[in-house]
Design a protein around this nucleic acid. Structure first.
Lengths: 237, 237
DNA sequence: TGCGAAAATTGATCTGGGTCAATCGCCTTT
DNA sequence: AAAGGCGATTGACCCAGATCAATTTTCGCA
């Protein structure tokens, strides 16, 4: 949204002590490769609300999210928005066949990415099938998520959508922050609505309804699952 | 749906004159590889309505659709169904990370697939990165489709959904049957409804409404686009 | 060629979630 | 500490699309 004034970190970064070393595509690289890989990427910081790349932009870079949360979304000509996913540390962004990004991505809160110019990255992959396999693995995982989300969007009620979202988001945070019934929600209600194919009002009402029923507690910056089993039942598997 | 009585074709098939030679994953193989590849797959026929594989089944095979159309879908415990896509000749099915299919697939009309046992296929890929790259390409293409479909499911009206579906289906048929304003629809109205996140009644009503407005003509086994530009306008890009 | 069943269409009515419109409750910023 | 502003909540009302209920059309099969 805002004008993009990115902050590039001084060259001092080393992959070997990167926070997402074992989650990201890099997990497929051995120490020698990793040192070479280090020179391909540069760390870039984006502040809250900044757009990292836009749908229809020609793809010049791939990104490895290192820290923070991003919303990935598509817009219809009249402004309707569908968020197709939230990216978390370890996620790899930018793969496409058309040569253009097919969604936009912006920062929710401060974000650090590891940015790779397309050509050198492509060359690096060339003779490293294990990296390609890792990328494919992430794509297939993403595809599975996308299909689950289609079911949610096409066939679930508002209550089910919200319940499933809370559980799914909590689940995704497990590998990053460990399991917890306290679920931070860094994204806005509008973001949640656009992710679930609902309006902000319906999301808000559903939250308060769940709270009235003692199923969740709305806390500052997130929610707390008071009765996870009940939420699971509401999500209709 | 029906009990599965598959028909395996006698061994006489050769990849080099396969109908999907240039569309499928096989397009990445050179003639020598293709001859070796030939021994990995066997052609299997499924009749209308038969299930090729089911969600949650352990993946023992990958499939290359050679002829016919398949519906790919997920079911909720209470029977609600979301069709996540229709497969056409050239499509590659079975990639997943969990070791289980994450959707079900059944034949719409008669279908011929080229079936590969998982292990030998995996071994064949192992030292052929160009095949892996081709598979990744198909996965990324699929991912793009999935994201577009999320927008449709989450943010488009019934009219827009139907119009977009007709255009999208027509577009997919171009590479198989050439461009045409006559669009065959081998799937049922229920299938279309479950693909678009609508009910069968809404799909039917929308078709008749479009026909009344002179935008399409409902013909036997499909529709004809009388005013493609108008349909595009309705689809809201 | 006709019969039974399944698919598709059409009509009448209902409702979940959208729309419109106030507040409310914070965070800033001064 | 007051004011301004933005995100979130809440309420009143509405409507697109679901549901329920007949037909009508198509199709497989004898």
């Amino acid at each position: 949204m805002k004008a993009s004034v990115v902050k590039i970190e001084p060259n001092g970064h080393v992959c070997s002590d990167c926070a997402v070393r074992d989650l990201a595509v890099c997990s497929s690289l051995d120490p020698t490769e990793l040192r070479e890989f280090e020179h391909l990427g540069r760390r870039v910081h984006f502040s809250s609300g900044e757009t990292v790349f836009s749908e229809e932009d020609i793809t010049t870079s791939f990104y490895n999210l290192v820290e923070g949360v991003m919303r990935l979304y598509k817009l219809l000509p009249d402004g309707r928005r569908q968020i197709v996913g939230f990216a978390l540390p370890g996620d790899f962004l930018g793969m496409n066949i058309s040569g253009r990004h097919n969604f936009s991505a912006d920062a929710i809160g401060g974000v650090t990415v590891c940015q790779f110019a397309k050509a050198p990255f492509g060359r690096f992959i060339e003779d490293r099938p294990h990296l390609l396999r890792r990328i494919n693995e992430l794509a297939v995982r993403e595809l599975s998520h996308a299909r689950n989300h289609m079911v949610l969007l096409g066939r679930r009620s508002a209550d089910e959508k919200v319940a499933a979202f809370l559980l799914g988001w909590r689940e995704r945070l497990v590998s990053l922050k460990g399991a917890s019934d306290t679920v931070p929600l860094p994204m806005s209600r509008q973001d949640i609505a656009d992710y679930l194919g609902l309006t902000i009002e319906t999301v808000s009402r559903t939250f308060t309804k769940l709270e009235r029923h003692g199923v969740i507690e709305i806390i500052h910056g997130g929610i707390s699952l008071l009765d996870p089993a009940k939420v699971e039942a509401l999500a209709a598997a």
